[in-house]
Nucleic acid binder design. Structure first.
Length: 794
RNA sequence: GCCGAAGUGGCGGAACUGGCAGACGCGCUGGACUCAAAAUCCAGUGGGCUCCGGCCCGUGUGGGUUCGAUUCCCACCUUCGGCACCA
């Protein structure tokens, strides 16, 4: 009689064993220690400590990382696998406003809850490296890094139109405005002119387009495309149009310099400074009205609108005076906010010209060559564009240039629960950085977290008033805090050297572990976190602080786990969370099922009956192995069970390590178990059982460890990963597939030693094939060695 | 509108390099065990036809390449994602 499988008991027991053994901690290299080739930095996006605890998406994400960690570790790699908390941010602050308490208390309570949940799932995490962005030991270095960006002019302050979320009462970055709405709360975003802090991400626009991945690195093509679209590089020219009567130049950006002779009017955006300075009253009224409208509405507008400004710009190629209009189809935040309008060759300009009855002059003919372009007629368009630009360049009226869609990252926030900006504003000295030795600038307490037209920190007078580090005079602190994406743009570097109190990290240690070998996280961060982190690493590389230019060598995006959108939640009342599943089926079933559900990069629908199936599989594994454990080990031989076991080793290893596919290995182990339970008396049964236990360990480490012990062994978590033996993979026979005209007609076992002629002879001799041949002539035979024979008859 | 990804049983999905479509699991059907149920075990399970030997059809639709196509090419349909008055 065997023991019953009790997941709760064995799981908590083995979790204690691993914790006591510090099983998953990994040391940093000593100075001078040569770097072994087999080290691996396994990283999944760090969680935000929400009050709802972990959701299924976290479970999927971290279990995937866990499987890779176990397989790599047991394959002899030194694996760094840390965890931490993206602890600053609005939800905790809003909860504090709503329910009282300090955001810190709320956050730390949530962290404690989630840490417990994580430990209950038995993930192989080096908890000694845990970091949290709200910890002064962490944000001290966020501030320190900010100061380096500031010194290199990559962080700067300017007044600019920024996205203001009226609900969250703060500025948000372009990257987190979705369809004109705040990504977090869904409120309509307003444009406001404000003085804000920016990171000069645009300085790295071209480098961010290049994915300078190390050997073996790989990013999904999809993600690279999303980032490239976001950066939106387009090559063209900047051309100066003269406004003679005002003695000023208006620059335009165009990708179609070849159509310059077709420009018949000129348009500036409503927000363009030219309007307020020089336009007629009527034009100004229009501009104020149009500029106030949401960009979405502006885009949805079918009819073109605009007003003549009363001035003319001179086309530098032919001296023509073009009327300057103001119209809201021209956008201030792309190019120069002004365009030359070529209605013959631009759909929008044509609509505008038709609406306001402006001339249309064709300058590129059907065959793609220039016409009506004095001195350039007959040239192909691309060549014509180059020629026109170089002529203008000689005259100092134009130059080839590049325009980007990417904007600098505005990262100052008018809220409380974030990293304080280590800057002091002095009336005499201006913007003065807090000296490094005065870091961290601690986040002070305030009476009220709710923003009331000014950032909460500004209300703490005691904190705000300081002496200027430069002149010693009275000065004020910067009351904004940093976007939490600043915290998460470098957390993965801090993990490698988390206890360093001299520097954010030591280059030697960072260069040993990094870049991250495998990063796993949602694709929703494609243009945000993933872009910011690349910007940070490129800049830090230019500062000489680390020796690589990309943070993440390999990237993988997990799919979304949908929790019964329809029937389940209605009939059952509430949806099961990870805790419920662990309580009902155990962590091993939870972990195995979340990966068994389907390809990890696709969205999947949670199914309660699905986890029943996995639970059944684990119970069956338990029963079969536990019964076998009582029988002594003997010579396994080389029978079908042993060969199947080796084939399974090969399949599981290849799927996890090469294909990064996590659901098919479970199927493979199920097949092995099916074969095993069909032949319990087979001499290879014990070997098959040990193999199944060893291979399932990355997925279901607790039951595997327990069964491994019952099989008479120890410490499975550090046992070498099994290696398939070619001798057992090699076959003496194979199943020959016989086709007639490409259709399957017969199959039977034959020796691998047969020649092609012999294979054809066997195939032709088959009675089933004979029926099909029916006296017809064989016109052609195709033989695929070790696979099939196809007889073509006619 | 432009760019990209994906469409396979009742369901999740497998088939990796052009070579047996539907592995594995869920669900369902029948049976065993049981007073009964749960659990477990056994058998079956793409559709149609069948003289029970088999035969035909079948991977979104239509074409093509090939001895052979879920896989490659072209067109279309649908779904999802990114960008979008970006000059």
């Amino acid at each position: 009689m065997t023991d019953r499988y009790d997941p709760q008991e064995i799981e908590t027991r083995w979790q204690r064993v691993w914790e006591d053994a510090r099983a998953f901690e990994v040391p940093n290299p000593e100075p001078g220690q040569p770097a072994p080739e087999t080290h691996w930095y396994q990283l999944e996006m760090l969680p935000y400590p929400s009050g709802n605890g972990m959701h299924m998406g976290h479970v999927l994400n971290y279990t995937m990382g866990d499987v890779v960690t176990h397989v790599r570790r047991r394959s002899g790699w030194s694996v760094l696998r840390p965890m931490g908390w993206d602890a600053f941010g609005l939800p905790a602050e809003n909860a504090a406003i709503r329910e009282g308490g300090h955001p810190r208390e709320i956050t730390e309570r949530n962290i404690a809850t989630i840490r417990t949940q994580m430990k209950r799932l038995g993930w192989a995490i080096d908890w000694d490296r845990e970091v949290s962005s709200h910890d002064p030991d962490y944000y001290r270095w966020t501030q320190w890094l900010f100061l380096r960006f500031f010194e290199h002019d990559l962080a700067y302050r300017k007044e600019a139109p920024v996205n203001w979320c009226p609900n969250d009462q703060t500025v948000i970055a372009n990257e987190y405005v979705v369809d004109g709405k705040c990504e977090r709360c869904g409120a309509e975003v307003e444009l406001r002119n404000m003085t804000q802090w920016f990171f000069r991400t645009t300085a790295y626009a071209d480098e961010l387009l290049e994915f300078e991945l190390p050997e073996g690195g790989e990013w999904p093509e999809r993600t690279k495309t999303i980032q490239r679209n976001w950066i939106g590089r387009s090559e063209g020219a900047e051309i100066l149009f003269r406004v003679d009567e005002l003695d000023l130049d208006l620059p335009v950006f165009t990708t179609r310099a070849d159509t310059l002779f077709g420009a018949t009017f000129f348009v500036v955006a409503p927000e363009h400074p030219f309007v307020a300075a020089h336009a007629t009253e009527e034009a100004q009224v229009y501009a104020r009205h149009a500029g106030a409208r949401k960009s979405e509405d502006r885009a949805a507008e079918t009819e073109k609108t605009g007003v003549f400004t009363g001035h003319y710009a001179t086309n530098p190629v032919n001296g023509e005076r073009l009327p300057i209009w103001v119209a809201d189809y021209v956008l201030m935040d792309y190019g120069t906010g002004a365009i030359m309008a070529v209605p013959a060759h631009d759909e929008r300009d044509r609509e505008f010209a038709e609406t306001f009855d402006l001339p249309i002059v064709e300058v590129v003919s059907e065959d793609g060559t220039l016409v009506n372009s004095d001195g350039f007629d007959g040239k192909p368009a691309a060549e014509g564009a180059r020629a026109i630009v170089s002529k203008l360049e000689e005259q100092g009226r134009g130059k080839a240039t590049v325009s980007y869609r990417l904007r600098d990252w505005s990262f100052s926030r008018q809220r409380y629960w974030g990293c304080p900006i280590p800057i002091i504003h002095c009336e005499r000295c201006g913007v003065v950085p807090v000296p490094d030795d005065q870091l961290p600038v601690l986040l002070p307490d305030v009476e009220d977290y709710a923003p009331k037209g000014k950032p909460p920190l500004a209300s703490n007078e005691e904190w705000m008033n300081v002496t200027c580090p430069s002149c010693g005079g009275p000065a004020r602190r910067d009351a904004d805090t940093m976007d939490t994406f600043v915290d998460s743009s470098w957390y993965f570097i801090r993990y490698v050297d988390p206890h360093n109190d001299e520097l954010p990290f030591e280059r030697r240690v960072v260069d040993y572990w990094m870049p991250v070998s495998q990063y796993i996280g949602g694709i929703d961060h494609a243009t945000g976190h993933l872009l910011y982190s690349r910007f940070f690493v490129k800049a830090l590389n230019d500062f000489g602080m680390l020796g690589f230019r990309e943070p993440f060598s390999r990237l993988f995006h997990q799919g979304w786990v949908q929790m019964g959108g329809t029937k389940m939640s209605k009939t059952k009342g509430n949806v099961m969370g990870p805790d419920d599943i662990v309580a009902a089926y155990g962590a091993d079933a939870m972990r195995t099922y979340i990966l068994f559900m389907g390809p990890a990069d696709q969205d999947m629908e949670w199914s309660d009956s699905g986890i029943e199936g996995i639970s059944r599989f684990l119970r069956r594994l338990w029963r079969v192995v536990d019964e076998l454990a009582e029988h002594p080990a003997g010579d396994p031989g080389d029978g079908p069970l042993v060969r199947k076991a080796h084939a399974t080793i090969s399949k599981v290893s290849d799927d996890v390590l090469r294909r990064f596919q996590f659901h098919t290995p479970i199927s493979a182990v199920m097949e092995l178990l099916n074969d095993l339970s069909a032949a319990p008396g087979d001499p290879g049964a014990r070997f098959a059982a040990e193999t199944a236990v060893s291979l399932i360990q990355p997925y279901a480490p607790h039951i595997a460890e327990e069964l491994w012990q019952r099989l008479g062994h120890e410490r499975l978590w550090e046992q070498p990963w099994p290696v398939a033996d070619d001798r057992f993979l090699a076959r003496e026979t194979f199943e020959l597939v016989v086709q007639v005209n490409g259709k399957l007609r017969d199959r039977f076992e034959v020796s691998v030693d047969l020649s092609e002629e012999e294979l054809v002879a066997r195939a032709t001799a088959s009675p089933k094939v004979q029926t099909q041949l029916d006296g017809k002539q064989i016109r052609k035979t195709i033989v695929v060695p070790r696979k099939l024979v196809n007889l073509v008859v006619g």
